[in-house]
Nucleic acid binder design. Structure first.
Lengths: 225, 225
DNA sequence: TCGTAAACGGAGGATCTGTCTCCGCTAACG
DNA sequence: CGTTAGCGGAGACAGATCCTCCGTTTACGA
């Protein structure tokens, strides 16, 4: 096994370091500039030549896949942690949301929906797993009555996207802290409030949300703030 | 005066119509694709030839300016309406926020911060006026105790941006209705909640927010979802 | 109804932007 | 200290976008 792993997959130390920096840079650039961002920008932010990027990731799709996979793994880990932790259902959900905010890309997965085949053998299961974990968090919070019954999986997911996307024009650290702050504010709105009339608009579960996305073929998704 | 106005500024009926459609299309495209979006897309969505766009707006900057100016006027009007309406402070503020959501562009001003000089003779005052009106809404809501004291002008403004930016991958009408729904949910978090511990993160007023933006020179803002 | 000037649309050349490869140089690792 | 994995960046290529020019269409006053 030592031999086995040594044979080829073992990268030279600098190569491994560069690969990680590329992934991190790609994560940031993806969130800030969208899926169409110049790869040279990714390389620059990673402090690496453009050739090094292409050496590791043969094309844009490969890079995006790697970023998304990484993000899914991280958010799944965060969700599991939240499920294990003691506390009420909403507490766990919010704990997860805070963690997911830090993994900025988690929120960004919808951005790549139309560029990547999410049903492929790697991504599909990872995505499924992540979604199932969040679903469990939502269910648990519904079950113990700490999450309002009319707040759905889709609400949680899309609210996370809204919070996680960077606000243009703000320094990154301020933006990040504001996101957590706004999540704190939002929490009160997720609790059941006795007399409140239910929120309007589409009340979508996981399936409903996915169906809508599949249906939407139009509109190139690239943004350019 | 009839003569006066007739002399030149009077556009032919079709020209005026086209101009309005261009503005509307530009608004949408700007929000969805950012400031770098192809102008041909704007023309196409407006149902107009590219030459017509260039005839009305000599360059990208002129078009962006027109869009922003229009947005500022609309949101100012909405704010005034909200101030006039009966009801408590938070009610008025929320009423304004719902209206501003529909003028999607509110979300757009931060996008153009680095492309446009917001201090210029047209934009500066319009922006000032709009901000002052929102400030009054916030102050009034603080004054009558319906808005939590630790929720600031900057929170309101940036939350609006978060809500107004379209979620990629969703049909437009669903996206819009979800935004209103999420605003409904958020409202509970804006109310003063007796025992609650204050939200963390930067508590910025209008001046503080603007200062941060001015400081931030880096990062091209274009997105490409 | 008709004439005229305003307005329109879109083809297409110029330009800009980003992709991705090739190859000489650098530095890990044994 | 030699070998070779790995690096960086110039630059040819491809595609997208800009923006003008000009023949055609249309609003509107007479």
């Amino acid at each position: 096994m030592t031999d086995e792993t040594k044979v080829r997959p073992r990268l030279r130390a600098d190569a491994r370091r560069n690969q990680e920096q590329l992934l991190a840079a790609a994560r940031d650039v993806l969130v800030e500039r969208g899926t169409g961002a110049p790869l040279e920008e990714v390389a620059r932010r990673a402090g690496v030549g453009i050739a090094t990027l292409y050496r590791r990731f043969p094309d844009r799709t490969a890079l995006l896949r790697a970023v998304v996979l990484d993000a899914l793994e991280r958010t799944s880990a965060a969700a599991e942690e939240a499920l294990d932790a003691a506390g009420d259902g909403l507490g766990a959900l919010v704990r997860y949301l805070h963690a997911a905010l830090d993994v900025r890309v988690s929120a960004v997965i919808p951005l790549v929906l139309d560029r990547l085949d999410l049903e492929d053998p790697d991504l599909g299961p990872a995505r499924e797993r992540s979604a199932a974990l969040v679903q469990r968090l939502v269910d648990a919070a519904h079950a113990d009555g700490t999450l309002a019954a009319d707040v759905t999986f889709a609400d949680v997911g899309t609210l996370l996207v809204r919070l996680a996307r960077p606000l243009p024009g703000l320094p990154r650290d301020v933006d990040g802290r504001l996101a957590h702050r706004h999540l704190d504010l939002l929490v009160a709105g997720l609790r059941p409030v006795p007399g409140r009339e239910p929120p309007g608009g589409p009340q979508l579960d996981r399936v409903g949300l996915r169906a809508l996305r599949a249906a939407d073929v139009s509109s190139g998704a690239d943004e350019r703030g």
